[in-house]
């Protein structure tokens, strides 16, 4: 075999084999749940150890925000419309934090099944529209 051709064939074959192996491995990785981000349902059903730091996200349930009068403590429910999770947070909330808005909380589950947040971040969605349109959409709903 011509040396140059031999080198080319070796390069192409090994790159192809590597790509196939990588594809198989990535497919097997994607079939596993490996994010550290949970919806309330996932957090209830999975066996996340109390005390391990995770992130959870969902909508703030309407009418669930209870602000303490003498401190910064807030208690609210986040929900994915199947399960909900009670979150306790002590700190300043971001501007966009409101009922029916998406939030991401970072913290850990306590023994009693409630979530103690160390950080609350307001997530905003990819929908943008003028206020009048939003008002109309709300009316239709």
């Amino acid at each position: 075999m011509h040396p140059l051709r031999k080198q080319r064939i070796y390069a192409i074959v090994t790159v192809l084999l590597g790509a196939i192996a990588a594809l198989v491995l990535v497919m097997s990785a994607l079939s596993k749940n490996m994010n550290l981000f949970y919806s309330p349902s996932e957090l209830v059903s999975s066996n996340v150890a109390p005390g391990s730091v995770v992130r959870a996200g969902g909508m703030v349930a309407s009418g669930s925000i209870q602000k303490s009068t003498d401190s910064l403590e807030v208690i609210f429910l986040i929900t994915d419309f199947q399960n909900s999770l009670s979150v306790t947070y002590n700190g300043i909330l971001p501007d966009l934090f409101s009922e029916d808005a998406g939030v991401v909380v970072k913290g850990f589950l306590k023994e009693d099944g409630t979530f103690l947040a160390q950080e609350v971040l307001a997530k905003h969605d990819e929908n943008y529209m003028p206020p009048e349109v939003a008002k109309m959409l709300n009316k239709i709903e």
């Binding site: 529209m129 003028p130 349109v133 939003a134």
Partner: peptide, 10 residues
Amino acid sequence: PTDYKQGDVY
């Protein structure tokens, strides 16, 4: 137009 949620910051 401004955004219904974020206002002008968007």
